[in-house]
Protein backbone atom coordinates (compact mmCIF):
# COMPACT_ATOMS: atom_id res chain seq x y z
CA UNK A 1 0.00 0.00 0.00
CA UNK A 2 2.71 2.47 1.07
CA UNK A 3 4.44 1.84 -2.23
CA UNK A 4 1.38 3.08 -4.16
CA UNK A 5 0.92 6.18 -2.03
CA UNK A 6 4.39 7.63 -2.43
CA UNK A 7 3.05 10.95 -3.62
CA UNK A 8 -0.19 12.86 -3.33
CA UNK A 9 -1.54 14.89 -6.23
CA UNK A 10 -3.52 18.06 -5.71
CA UNK A 11 -5.42 20.01 -8.33
CA UNK A 12 -5.94 23.42 -6.82
CA UNK A 13 -8.22 26.12 -8.16
CA UNK A 14 -6.37 29.39 -7.80
CA UNK A 15 -7.23 33.03 -8.24
CA UNK A 16 -4.74 35.88 -7.94
CA UNK A 17 -7.12 38.64 -6.89
CA UNK A 18 -10.82 39.08 -6.05
CA UNK A 19 -11.57 40.11 -9.63
CA UNK A 20 -9.17 38.01 -11.70
CA UNK A 21 -10.10 34.79 -13.48
CA UNK A 22 -9.57 31.46 -11.71
CA UNK A 23 -7.18 28.83 -13.05
CA UNK A 24 -5.97 25.45 -11.80
CA UNK A 25 -2.52 24.20 -10.91
CA UNK A 26 -1.33 20.72 -10.10
CA UNK A 27 0.97 19.97 -7.18
CA UNK A 28 2.60 16.80 -5.98
CA UNK A 29 3.87 16.24 -2.46
CA UNK A 30 5.45 13.22 -0.77
CA UNK A 31 3.08 10.93 1.08
CA UNK A 32 3.19 10.82 4.87
CA UNK A 33 0.85 8.81 7.09
CA UNK A 34 -2.01 10.72 8.79
CA UNK A 35 -1.55 13.75 6.55
CA UNK A 36 -4.48 16.15 6.23
CA UNK A 37 -5.27 18.84 3.67
CA UNK A 38 -3.95 21.72 5.82
CA UNK A 39 -0.64 19.95 6.45
CA UNK A 40 -0.42 19.21 2.72
CA UNK A 41 -0.98 22.89 1.89
CA UNK A 42 1.83 23.74 4.34
CA UNK A 43 4.03 21.26 2.47
CA UNK A 44 3.19 23.02 -0.82
CA UNK A 45 3.88 26.38 0.83
CA UNK A 46 7.41 25.25 1.76
CA UNK A 47 8.20 24.43 -1.84
CA UNK A 48 5.64 26.02 -4.18
CA UNK A 49 6.58 24.20 -7.35
CA UNK A 50 3.89 22.76 -9.62
CA UNK A 51 3.91 19.19 -10.86
CA UNK A 52 5.54 20.27 -14.11
CA UNK A 53 8.35 22.04 -12.26
CA UNK A 54 7.23 25.66 -12.47
CA UNK A 55 7.93 27.81 -9.42
CA UNK A 56 4.74 29.69 -8.48
CA UNK A 57 3.43 31.89 -5.68
CA UNK A 58 2.50 29.75 -2.65
CA UNK A 59 -1.17 28.82 -2.34
CA UNK A 60 -3.08 31.12 0.00
CA UNK A 61 -5.62 29.66 2.43
CA UNK A 62 -6.90 30.31 5.92
CA UNK A 63 -6.63 28.10 8.97
CA UNK A 64 -6.33 28.54 12.68
CA UNK A 65 -7.26 25.95 15.32
CA UNK A 66 -6.54 22.78 13.30
CA UNK A 67 -9.09 20.83 15.34
CA UNK A 68 -12.46 21.58 13.72
CA UNK A 69 -13.42 24.28 16.18
CA UNK A 70 -12.73 27.62 14.47
CA UNK A 71 -14.22 27.01 11.03
CA UNK A 72 -11.56 29.07 9.22
CA UNK A 73 -10.24 26.39 6.86
CA UNK A 74 -13.57 25.61 5.15
CA UNK A 75 -13.04 24.95 1.43
CA UNK A 76 -14.42 22.74 -1.30
CA UNK A 77 -12.55 19.43 -1.20
CA UNK A 78 -13.35 16.96 -3.99
CA UNK A 79 -16.53 18.85 -4.70
CA UNK A 80 -17.90 19.13 -1.17
CA UNK A 81 -17.61 21.92 1.40
CA UNK A 82 -15.71 20.82 4.50
CA UNK A 83 -12.95 21.71 6.94
CA UNK A 84 -9.46 21.19 5.50
CA UNK A 85 -7.98 20.42 8.93
CA UNK A 86 -10.03 17.26 9.41
CA UNK A 87 -9.95 16.13 5.77
CA UNK A 88 -7.55 13.19 6.03
CA UNK A 89 -5.59 12.37 2.88
CA UNK A 90 -5.97 8.63 3.50
CA UNK A 91 -9.73 9.01 3.22
CA UNK A 92 -9.75 11.14 0.07
CA UNK A 93 -9.86 10.06 -3.52
CA UNK A 94 -6.88 11.24 -5.59
CA UNK A 95 -6.16 13.56 -7.31
CA UNK A 96 -7.49 15.75 -4.54
CA UNK A 97 -9.31 18.77 -5.91
CA UNK A 98 -9.32 21.92 -3.79
CA UNK A 99 -11.40 24.97 -4.61
CA UNK A 100 -12.53 28.06 -2.72
CA UNK A 101 -16.13 28.21 -1.48
CA UNK A 102 -17.49 30.44 -4.22
CA UNK A 103 -20.71 31.22 -2.41
CA UNK A 104 -18.48 33.80 -0.71
CA UNK A 105 -16.29 36.42 -2.40
CA UNK A 106 -12.84 34.97 -3.09
CA UNK A 107 -9.95 37.11 -1.83
CA UNK A 108 -7.14 34.97 -3.18
CA UNK A 109 -6.77 31.25 -4.02
CA UNK A 110 -8.63 29.35 -1.28
CA UNK A 111 -9.04 32.39 0.97
CA UNK A 112 -12.60 33.72 1.09
CA UNK A 113 -14.37 36.64 2.72
CA UNK A 114 -17.07 35.32 5.07
CA UNK A 115 -18.07 38.66 6.58
CA UNK A 116 -21.54 38.29 5.02
CA UNK A 117 -22.29 35.75 7.77
CA UNK A 118 -21.38 38.28 10.44
CA UNK A 119 -23.73 40.79 8.80
CA UNK A 120 -26.49 38.14 8.83
CA UNK A 121 -25.87 37.44 12.53
CA UNK A 122 -26.30 41.14 13.18
CA UNK A 123 -29.53 41.16 11.18
CA UNK A 124 -31.12 38.38 13.23
CA UNK A 125 -29.79 39.86 16.49
CA UNK A 126 -27.72 36.82 17.39
CA UNK A 127 -26.79 38.10 20.82
CA UNK A 128 -28.38 38.63 24.24
CA UNK A 129 -29.37 42.23 24.77
CA UNK A 130 -29.49 42.27 28.57
CA UNK A 131 -26.75 40.47 30.36
CA UNK A 132 -25.07 40.54 33.70
CA UNK A 133 -23.66 38.27 36.32
CA UNK A 134 -25.65 36.55 39.00
CA UNK A 135 -25.09 34.55 42.11
CA UNK A 136 -26.17 31.01 41.27
CA UNK A 137 -29.27 31.31 43.48
CA UNK A 138 -30.44 34.52 41.74
CA UNK A 139 -29.69 33.55 38.14
CA UNK A 140 -32.56 33.03 35.68
CA UNK A 141 -33.44 29.36 35.53
CA UNK A 142 -32.28 27.45 32.46
CA UNK A 143 -34.11 24.23 31.63
CA UNK A 144 -31.35 21.60 31.37
CA UNK A 145 -33.00 19.96 28.34
CA UNK A 146 -33.18 23.31 26.56
CA UNK A 147 -29.58 23.92 27.56
CA UNK A 148 -28.57 20.67 25.82
CA UNK A 149 -30.15 21.91 22.57
CA UNK A 150 -28.57 25.34 23.02
CA UNK A 151 -25.19 23.70 23.61
CA UNK A 152 -25.52 21.75 20.37
CA UNK A 153 -26.39 24.87 18.35
CA UNK A 154 -23.65 26.88 20.08
CA UNK A 155 -21.09 24.56 18.45
CA UNK A 156 -21.68 26.46 15.21
CA UNK A 157 -18.36 27.98 14.13
CA UNK A 158 -19.72 30.03 11.17
CA UNK A 159 -17.49 27.99 8.89
CA UNK A 160 -20.01 28.42 6.05
CA UNK A 161 -20.26 24.78 4.91
CA UNK A 162 -24.07 24.95 5.10
CA UNK A 163 -24.12 28.12 3.00
CA UNK A 164 -21.73 26.73 0.39
CA UNK A 165 -23.75 23.51 0.02
CA UNK A 166 -27.13 25.25 -0.06
CA UNK A 167 -28.48 25.71 -3.60
CA UNK A 168 -30.46 28.73 -2.41
CA UNK A 169 -27.51 30.69 -1.01
CA UNK A 170 -25.33 32.60 -3.43
CA UNK A 171 -25.12 35.72 -5.54
CA UNK A 172 -28.40 34.78 -7.28
CA UNK A 173 -30.40 34.87 -4.03
CA UNK A 174 -30.59 36.93 -0.83
CA UNK A 175 -31.15 33.98 1.55
CA UNK A 176 -28.92 34.29 4.62
CA UNK A 177 -28.60 30.51 4.96
CA UNK A 178 -29.01 27.91 7.68
CA UNK A 179 -26.27 28.91 10.11
CA UNK A 180 -27.34 32.51 10.88
CA UNK A 181 -31.05 31.53 10.87
CA UNK A 182 -30.49 28.78 13.41
CA UNK A 183 -28.37 31.10 15.57
CA UNK A 184 -31.51 33.21 15.96
CA UNK A 185 -33.15 30.12 17.45
CA UNK A 186 -30.21 29.64 19.85
CA UNK A 187 -30.71 33.10 21.29
CA UNK A 188 -34.49 32.62 21.41
CA UNK A 189 -33.82 29.69 23.75
CA UNK A 190 -31.76 31.77 26.16
CA UNK A 191 -33.57 32.76 29.40
CA UNK A 192 -32.80 36.43 28.77
CA UNK A 193 -32.37 36.28 25.02
CA UNK A 194 -35.97 35.13 24.60
CA UNK A 195 -37.20 38.63 25.48
CA UNK A 196 -36.12 39.65 21.97
CA UNK A 197 -37.65 36.60 20.30
CA UNK A 198 -40.19 38.72 18.43
CA UNK A 199 -37.45 40.95 16.97
CA UNK A 200 -35.50 37.94 15.72
CA UNK A 201 -38.54 36.25 14.22
CA UNK A 202 -39.53 39.44 12.46
CA UNK A 203 -36.00 39.73 11.09
CA UNK A 204 -36.29 36.13 9.83
CA UNK A 205 -39.56 37.08 8.13
CA UNK A 206 -37.79 39.87 6.26
CA UNK A 207 -35.93 39.84 2.96
CA UNK A 208 -33.47 36.98 2.71
CA UNK A 209 -34.96 35.39 5.81
CA UNK A 210 -36.20 31.89 6.45
CA UNK A 211 -38.54 31.84 3.44
CA UNK A 212 -35.39 31.52 1.32
CA UNK A 213 -35.06 27.94 2.58
CA UNK A 214 -36.05 25.46 -0.13
CA UNK A 215 -35.68 22.28 1.95
CA UNK A 216 -32.82 20.79 -0.02
CA UNK A 217 -31.42 19.80 3.39
CA UNK A 218 -27.81 19.87 2.19
CA UNK A 219 -26.99 21.98 5.25
CA UNK A 220 -27.62 19.21 7.76
CA UNK A 221 -25.67 16.74 5.59
CA UNK A 222 -22.53 18.86 5.42
CA UNK A 223 -22.53 20.49 8.88
CA UNK A 224 -19.15 19.49 10.39
CA UNK A 225 -20.57 19.97 13.89
CA UNK A 226 -23.60 17.75 13.24
CA UNK A 227 -26.04 20.44 14.27
CA UNK A 228 -29.61 19.33 13.46
CA UNK A 229 -30.08 22.40 11.27
CA UNK A 230 -33.21 21.21 9.44
CA UNK A 231 -34.95 20.39 12.72
CA UNK A 232 -34.31 23.88 14.04
CA UNK A 233 -35.26 25.45 10.71
CA UNK A 234 -38.60 23.61 10.92
CA UNK A 235 -39.03 24.85 14.50
CA UNK A 236 -38.23 28.38 13.34
CA UNK A 237 -40.80 27.99 10.55
CA UNK A 238 -43.35 27.11 13.22
CA UNK A 239 -42.33 30.09 15.35
CA UNK A 240 -42.29 32.49 12.40
CA UNK A 241 -45.77 31.38 11.27
CA UNK A 242 -47.12 31.95 14.78
CA UNK A 243 -45.44 35.35 14.82
CA UNK A 244 -47.04 36.16 11.47
CA UNK A 245 -50.49 35.39 12.91
CA UNK A 246 -49.69 37.60 15.91
CA UNK A 247 -48.57 40.40 13.57
CA UNK A 248 -51.84 40.12 11.65
CA UNK A 249 -54.30 39.75 14.51
CA UNK A 250 -52.70 41.37 17.56
CA UNK A 251 -52.12 44.82 16.16
Amino acid sequence: MAEQKKTITFIIERQDSPTSAPYTQEFEIPYRPALNVVASLMEIQKNPVTKDGKKVAPVTWECNCLEKVCGACMMVINGKARQACCALIDELEQPIRLAPARTFPVIRDLLIDRSVMFESLKRVQAWVEVDGTWEVKDAPIQNPYTATTAYEISHCMTCGCCLEACPNVGPQSDFIGASPSVQAYLFNLHPLGKFDKEKRLNALMGKGGITGCGNSQNCVEVCPKNIKLTTYLAQLNRDVNKQALKNIFNK
Binding site: G79, A165, P167, N168, S173, G212, G214, Q217, N218, E221
Partner: peptide, 12 residues
Amino acid sequence: LDAKNNPGAYGY
Protein backbone atom coordinates in the same frame (compact mmCIF):
# COMPACT_ATOMS: atom_id res chain seq x y z
CA LEU B 1 -34.32 31.37 -10.31
CA ASP B 2 -33.15 31.75 -6.68
CA ALA B 3 -31.63 28.28 -6.82
CA LYS B 4 -28.37 27.04 -8.25
CA ASN B 5 -29.20 23.33 -8.39
CA ASN B 6 -26.25 21.22 -7.24
CA PRO B 7 -27.28 17.55 -7.01
CA GLY B 8 -24.14 16.68 -8.99
CA ALA B 9 -21.91 17.80 -6.13
CA TYR B 10 -24.29 17.00 -3.28
CA GLY B 11 -26.19 13.93 -4.44
CA TYR B 12 -28.39 13.43 -1.38
